[in-house]
Design a protein around this nucleic acid. Structure first.
Lengths: 236, 236
DNA sequence: CGGTTGTTTGAACTGATTCAATCTGTGTGG
DNA sequence: CCACACAGATTGAATCAGTTCAAACAACCG
């Protein structure tokens, strides 16, 4: 499962580097990097962007993890997408249908849609690049739907752990789990109580070892099998 | 809930009309309509496009409904997206992560990616148009995730019915339900047995009346409340 | 008429939720 | 350094929503 990209983006690495390692040509990465923007620190589990407000910004994650979430009328929260280091949230016409919060302390580059949109319109390669990213995000969303709709709770958690390991570019032996159990519940459509039980089960079955947030995958192939995880959908 | 678009696209209406009523400028709709393509009839619940093959086609639904689906390793099927009349499925680089089947007998316009992509690259307005459609599909996908992850079975079915009514441009009193109960189960992540019980419940509670596939919404506001349905996410 | 597809119903079962309490680790201010 | 607060993790018991399996029923069609 060794990734094609060897450079694991570390804290505060430049956006430019990250975009290049995601497959963007150098001069286009430069262009985005030089776009007027500001860099903000986002604290985890604090309000950052609320649902229903104008979303005329581009964001790129320089380090950390962002989540898009929706809140049902009965107040239950569902995380609908994640953005890892090097990934972005594109501007949307009209009001945002989702809020944004950080999963862990994150460093975000925020630009204006009015600066971003013309760049994309003017450069077909840029357009193709974001087109592919959108398709990847679509594929991930579909996989999440299968996860929530068709897999049991153990498989859901196992699948999320596998996806996270691949998207964070960590090796398949060991990962620092970035999520609280509540966040895993909000992603996989469960309760935190049950997530806790699933973790205990998985450890009892020898699928993983835990020490705090550190997770050792004892047998990657087996955990991938349990979670029905087939990483092809993550290819760009 | 009367829609902004008054023309309900009927069987075999031209793609051009449908795209125009979806907000595309006339000359651009003409351009797409004149793109080399063939029109195929697709029978419901028969294999049409399988998962894992090249998806170098554009498709537009002229009439009927298409579904994108995935099959979990344990064989359980999840429908991950629907495309109603006038909506499309854009080409994807690489292999498709989902299969395609029709929900009801449908008439599909199929073009080649190599004809479609240059058109989009050459016409910024076309690009903006599809960009907005993609964002709408994204918003629908997020809503489906909330549906599967956070709502109980009654709310899931109610929400799907509401969304379907709006996307089919039917009035909010009456609709011919296009789905089998098995399909509703595959969309909402349940079993067909339970969907059946939910329908019976909803009828017993006076939310709907049924005669075969015909559904009367006795009280639209109430069924929308039950399904936590707020249609803003469907706006283009 | 027989075949097929979809709907309906019952009974038993189970996976996950709910509620509530407890425990653990970490950071803060005195 | 200790006391305290706070967020997150863990556990148990009771409950329930939804599944599973199986069978019957209805509608449609060639």
């Amino acid at each position: 499962m060794a990734s094609r990209r060897d450079k694991t983006p570390s804290r505060g690495v430049s956006l430019r580097e990250t975009l290049i390692s995601a497959g963007l040509e150098t001069h286009l990465a430069d262009m985005l990097d030089e776009m007027p923007h500001r860099v903000v620190q986002v604290e985890p589990r604090r309000p950052f962007r609320e649902q229903g407000v104008k979303r005329d910004e581009v964001m790129f994650v320089r380090s950390g993890i962002l989540s898009k979430f929706k809140t049902d009328s009965s107040g239950r929260r569902q995380i609908v997408a994640l953005r890892f280091s090097g990934e972005g949230i594109l501007p949307r016409d009209g009001l945002a249908e989702y809020g944004i919060q950080a999963i862990v302390r994150s460093e975000i580059m925020v630009g204006r849609a009015e600066d971003f949109d013309p760049l994309v319109l003017a450069h077909p390669e840029l357009q193709r690049f974001f087109w592919r990213l959108i398709q990847r995000n679509e594929a991930i969303g579909y996989e999440w739907l299968v996860n929530c709709g068709r897999r049991d709770s153990t498989a859901r958690v196992a699948h999320l752990l596998c996806e996270t390991a691949v998207r964070m570019n960590v090796d398949t032996q060991h990962m620092t789990n970035p999520f609280t159990q509540q966040q895993i519940a909000d992603i996989t459509g469960q309760t935190s109580v049950n997530v806790n039980r699933v973790f205990a089960d998985m450890e009892r079955q020898g699928l993983i070892k835990r020490k705090g947030r550190e997770i050792q995958f004892s047998d990657w192939a087996e955990i991938a099998r349990v979670g029905s995880f087939q990483p092809s959908y993550l290819a760009v």
